[in-house]
């Protein structure tokens, strides 16, 4: 793995307009809207035992970070259809290296997005939380997006360009809404929360909430996300080997 290449690939993604809109502008805008609407009063959510402002901040931090992961699908589909991959195959960069570079770029962009969302929450909305809570929530959300980056790689490997857009929309809407990253599940009927547990974004959100609270059984969401990571890694690797053989 070439660190220099990873740095350039990450910088390239950070400069991308789509990344700026989906992973930075949108979560910050929603944080400002929802955070001001029901957060500033300091009311505490009885489900998570966190102030609503913190719940919203974690949601939006999780949403932006998740998008940094899922956007890799677009990057890969575009690069495949243009032929950039073919160009990269005449370099020492391996196929695995290419996929790893996407996960690393996703993590880098996600880190930026989480920091921006937290900073806006603290500076503009005066959110109050212990430093340890911010750090734990941030790290939880950050590492929690690895399975989303892998899911994006899988979409990138499978989807033809004309299907990538709708597939991406369905995935990101489903993850955002069902996982409770846009509207808190606490204010929805209980069955929604039960159904929500099938999507990894629900657990991403939970991991962030538990980090912020500094208590709770963080093993459960962590294990679910690790499980998704393992399954997706197996699928991505299998697909990659099959592609290599067929080529």
């Amino acid at each position: 793995m070439r660190p220099h290449y990873l740095a350039r690939e990450t910088m390239r993604q950070l400069r991308n307009v789509r990344s700026l809109v989906f992973t930075f502008a949108l979560p910050v805008a929603m944080l400002l809207i929802f955070g001001s609407a029901y957060g500033t009063g300091g009311a505490v959510d009885s489900t998570t035992h966190l102030p609503w402002l913190i719940v919203t901040t974690v949601q939006m931090g999780g949403y932006g970070a998740m998008m940094a992961g899922l956007s890799q699908a677009f990057a890969i589909v575009t690069e495949r259809s243009i032929g950039w991959n073919r160009q990269l195959r005449i370099t020492p960069l391996s196929g695995t290296g290419y996929l790893v570079s996407k996960v690393v770029a996703a993590l880098a962009v996600a880190a930026g997005s989480i920091l921006v969302v937290f900073a806006v929450s603290i500076l503009a909305l005066h959110a109050q939380l212990a430093v340890a809570g911010w750090i734990a929530a941030g790290i939880g959300l950050w590492l929690g997006i690895i399975p989303f980056a892998l899911l994006a790689i899988l979409i990138g490997q499978y989807a033809r360009p004309e299907f990538a857009q709708p597939l991406f929309m369905v995935t990101f809407l489903g993850m955002s809404i069902l996982g409770g990253l846009w509207v808190p599940l606490q204010i929805m009927p209980a069955w929604v929360s039960n159904v929500a547990q099938i999507v990894p974004s629900y657990w991403l959100n939970r991991l962030g909430q538990m980090g912020a609270l500094g208590s709770g059984d963080a093993m459960a969401p962590a294990l679910v996300l690790v499980g998704w990571t393992v399954v997706l890694t197996v699928l991505v690797t299998w697909r990659y080997r099959r592609d290599a053989v067929r080529a």
Partner: peptide, 15 residues
């Protein structure tokens, strides 16, 4: 690093 190539269907990223 012994080989360089310009291939059919290998392109640069437009942005």
């Amino acid at each position: 690093g012994d080989v360089g190539a310009m291939l059919q269907g290998g392109a640069l990223l437009p942005t």
